[in-house]
């Protein structure tokens, strides 16, 4: 099995977790169990992790900037308020990633 996942890394304070979840992310993201521990407890072995946060940050910035370039069309499609709120949400999330409060990794694991 191989999967990419976005998560709040260990050591992030409860206050910062609440700020992240306030963006509308699912409460599962608040889990304090590490992906490694979850995989291990599910019986997976040969667990590997590769940090892909920099690429996640690049793509997040790309979406934000791309949406800015197409703002006029998107405001018509989504409505001005929804567009503004979405962009604010994306800007905040980029700040969280830059601050190390959100990460994205590739996990690879095998069944015994």
């Amino acid at each position: 099995m191989a999967f990419y996942t976005i998560f709040i890394p260990p050591g992030v304070s409860d206050a910062d977790r609440k700020r992240i979840l306030a963006l509308g992310d699912p409460p599962e993201l608040a889990s304090t169990s590490s992906e490694r521990d979850l995989l291990r407890s599910a019986g997976f072995v040969k667990i590997e992790e590769a940090d892909e946060t920099q690429e996640y940050l690049r793509i997040s910035r790309g979406y934000y900037e791309g949406r800015e370039r197409h703002a006029a069309e998107l405001r018509k499609l989504e409505g001005a308020q929804a567009f503004a709120e979405g962009q604010e949400n994306r800007r905040t999330r980029i700040g969280f990633i830059e601050a190390g409060l959100q990460r994205r990794s590739l996990f690879v694991a095998a069944r015994p």
Binding site: Y4, I6, E55, I59, G66, H70, L77, R104
Partner: peptide, 29 residues
């Protein structure tokens, strides 16, 4: 949401291609 511009255009700009890519997983990944 309607498929087509600007959504496809943004995907092309972000990922360098438009092969149904969405989310954060790049073609290289």
């Amino acid at each position: 949401a309607p498929v087509g511009t600007p959504r496809d255009a943004i995907q092309r700009e972000v990922f360098g291609a438009n092969t149904g890519v969405n989310g954060y997983t790049t073609i290289a990944q």
